[in-house]
């Protein structure tokens, strides 16, 4: 299998790799960088568990070849906020009970970030639409939407 060089920025750090043509972005993140927060649950772009930001846009990392991410900037859940300073979305997910099994959580957070980056004051319906590409089987979505709404309305406890 021929390998091809790529360079990209992931969570603020620069990396270069030699990768095979059929390696997907999700494999690069999980297997080469051990960024295991990004999950895979369908492999077909149907569930959103593998959502990351690529040049500021939410993408299903199971539907992006690693080579296609060449030159781009990737943010994963590990780059959203650190232990010391949780991102407000992360705080809200904790406080509003938006996490159950947690498998969809990283993808949900990344979709929520993409939504708020592009529309800082979404309505509840716009929040619903912003999460439409992320499946959750535990929560029924209500508390996830509550959490995002709390961030929008600045209702987080410090």
């Amino acid at each position: 299998m021929p390998k091809y060089p790529i360079e990209l920025k992931i969570n603020g750090d620069k990396y270069s790799f030699e990768v095979e043509a059929d390696l997907r972005l999700v494999d690069l993140l999980r297997n080469h960088l051990q960024l295991l927060g990004t999950k895979e649950a369908c492999g077909k772009g149907e569930c959103g568990a593998c959502t990351v930001l690529m040049d500021g846009k939410s993408v299903a990392s199971c539907l992006v070849l690693a080579l296609q991410a060449n030159g781009s900037e990737i943010i994963t859940v590990e780059g959203l906020g650190g232990e010391a300073a949780l991102h407000p979305l992360q705080q809200a997910f904790i406080q509003y009970g938006a996490v159950q099994c947690g498998f969809c959580t990283p993808g949900m957070l990344m979709s929520a970030k993409f939504l708020l980056d592009n529309n800082p004051r979404p309505s509840r319906e716009e929040i619903r639409a912003g999460l439409a590409g992320n499946l959750c089987r535990c929560t029924g979505y209500t508390k996830i939407i509550d959490a995002i709404e709390a961030v929008v309305e600045g209702r987080l406890e410090r």
Binding site: L86, L89, Q90, I94, G97, G102, F103
Partner: peptide, 15 residues
């Protein structure tokens, strides 16, 4: 708050 929520929003727990 759920005892495992903080770790989960950080993407840290190993499944």
């Amino acid at each position: 708050n759920r005892v495992d929520a903080r770790e989960k929003v950080l993407g840290k727990p190993l499944y």
